[in-house]
Simulated assay, not measured.
Amino acid sequence: MCRFLAWTGAARHLDEFVFKGDQCLVAQSRHALIGKTPLNGDGFGLAWYTDRGTPCIYKDLNPAWSDSNLKQIAYHTKAQLFLAHVRASTSMAVSRNNSHPFGVGPWCFMHNGQVGGHLRIRQALDAMIPADLYERRNGATDSEAIFLIAAGGGLDREPVAAMARAVGRVETLARENGETPFMRFAACWTDGKRVFAARYASDRFAPSLYYKVQQGGVIICSEPLAEAETWIEVPPGSAIETDGKALKCHEFAPMSLQPA
């Protein structure tokens, strides 16, 4: 699986969360404490927002701990909203195009989870991506496909509901043609103004997701960055939304949105 984090609030240097601390994101890439896969060395990515309106995305296929460019960028870059991800591949190749986050217009998305039987349903999954967005299909992961399906299904208007519909459609496909577990989904997405995150699974093993409201902003992550601090676990079947100040909770029930 994968590990990720997102920050929104007062401007912070990226390395404060990516490199500093006993259980920072790079530490999690070497030895995650929660989840199925302790090693997350199949690529990494960063995305941050400036006044340009679209995210600056830097990613590569190297393990996060070995990339000197990542250290320099994280040390010198300060942003009010940023995402960071370290990958553990479940089926697709280790490549830059398969590393997270993924971006379309102002939107950016990263994911931890899997679609059951992805290789078996890959062609049908690609067919769900709207034609006008298919040129943005640079990689081969199920994660990128879910994002593009959501982007073409009303993400601008309904950021939580559109993502839930996309996850529900993909889960339905996996139930009909794939294999168990049909869907495991913990993800974070943003338009550069608000950050959204959701946790869901077709079984009882939803990937982990936590958040913490602290002075100056909100941090969302796959697992706590420090054991001694108080983190709130996002319940399965739930989504959160924050602008770095207020935080809202939403139901996230993908299958309830599908036709009977």
Rank of each mutant, 00 (worst) to 15 (best):
L5C: 05
A6D: 10
L14M: 11
L14R: 12
E16N: 04
F19G: 00
K20E: 15
D22F: 03
Q23A: 13
A27Y: 02
A32W: 02
L33F: 01
K36M: 15
K36V: 14
K36W: 09
T37A: 08
G45K: 00
L46W: 03
L46Q: 05
A47C: 04
G53A: 07
Y58L: 13
A64F: 03
W65Q: 08
K71W: 15
A74T: 15
K78D: 07
K78Y: 07
A79R: 09
A84T: 06
A84I: 02
A84E: 02
H85K: 07
H85L: 00
V94W: 04
V94C: 03
R96Q: 14
N97R: 14
N97I: 03
N98Y: 10
P101Y: 02
F102R: 02
G105S: 08
G105E: 05
P106W: 11
H111E: 10
H111M: 05
N112D: 10
G113E: 01
V115N: 09
G116Q: 10
G117T: 04
R120K: 15
D126I: 11
M128H: 08
M128A: 03
I129K: 12
I129G: 06
A131N: 10
D132K: 02
Y134Q: 13
E135L: 14
R136N: 15
R137Y: 11
N138P: 05
T141R: 02
E144R: 02
A150C: 12
A150R: 09
A151E: 03
G153Q: 06
D156C: 06
P159D: 10
V160D: 06
A162Y: 05
A164Y: 03
A164K: 06
A166E: 00
V167S: 09
V170H: 01
T172W: 05
N177C: 13
N177I: 02
T180E: 14
P181C: 10
F182G: 05
M183P: 01
K193L: 13
K193W: 11
F196G: 00
A198N: 13
A201P: 00
S202F: 06
S202K: 04
S202R: 04
P207R: 04
S208Q: 09
Y210V: 13
I219Q: 02
E223S: 12
A226R: 02
E227D: 14
A228Y: 14
T230N: 09
I232Q: 08
E233Y: 03
P235K: 14
S238Y: 15
A239G: 06
A239E: 04
E241Y: 01
D243I: 03
K245A: 15
A246C: 12
A246D: 12
L247I: 08
C249M: 06
E251V: 10
E251C: 06
E251K: 11
F252L: 05
F252E: 02
A253D: 11
P254F: 06
P254L: 07
S256Q: 11
